[in-house]
Amino acid sequence: MSKGEIVLGCLAPHPPHLVYAENPPQNEAFSEGGWETLRWGYAKLARKLKTIDYDAIVIFTPHWQTYIGTHFLGLPEFKSKSVDPVFPNLFRYNYDLKVDVELAEAMHEETAKAGIITKMMRNPDFRVDYGTITSCHLLNPSWDKPIVTISSNRNSHYYSNEVMIEQAKALGEACMKAIEKSGKKVVLVSSHSLSHRHFVTEAPLPEDMSREHIYNHSQYVWDMKIIDMFRNGQMKEVVDIMPEYTEQTIAETEAGGLIWMMAAMGVPSYPAEIYGYQSVIGTGNCIACWDPNNETRELVL
């Protein structure tokens, strides 16, 4: 068996607004559109993904929050309806997805070996979080690949952003070992926004783009700084300033997804492909990917 590998790492924000705006048949709510900069960026990244040979998507989600270790989905199929508890008016999505349980168990095992508290989730009534569903739908609307969902252990809440980084690094390295041993080609997805301060009111028509803007200029400046570093392949520096960035922008990086992905990918020093940046109800959202293949890596935006 050949050694497994990570063929792409994606930063894939999950505002449910983006699925809402697409009007897929799985979602009950109906929209007139909105947030095209992000949706068109997602469409372009989804097209790239179609050109890549891979076996599974492994996604780290902030919306399956666990305090007792890191958990992995551990049943082959989940079929239900996901209703966003925050934006139920926008997202009521009927999902039917497959899980690569073998890969999930391998990651669980390697993670435990690394000394991280971990648990397989095997309750068939468990409802898959909307972060997983939104990011996976937008990256792969045909849902023709199995996924592995990893919960986010909330080390930032219990300890500090620094502890979160150390734990997420260890988790990423353990997941990479499991992927290599599996012989599989895997796409990693870190599902989150950048700056994450929301407006606490919503326009009568949520997709009214005349009302959409970043929560404040400080968040925008920080987001641009981070994105510039993505472009320049400065991921080691991004990891270094992550505690400050997360604190200053209330960033959703607090869950550890980006650090997990960077650690699994060996902290890339090559440029990221940037597919778009736009605010959603005040939060800053960037779609980006890290392509380890020099021949297919592009300058997108």
Binding site: W64, Q65, T66, Y67, I68, H71, K119, M121, R122, N123, D125, F126, R127, S151
Partner: peptide, 13 residues
């Protein structure tokens, strides 16, 4: 509905 807790899913539905 049938609810399952994020952390304590192993205790049941």
């Amino acid at each position: 509905w049938t609810h399952v807790d994020d952390d304590f899913h192993y205790l049941g539905s």
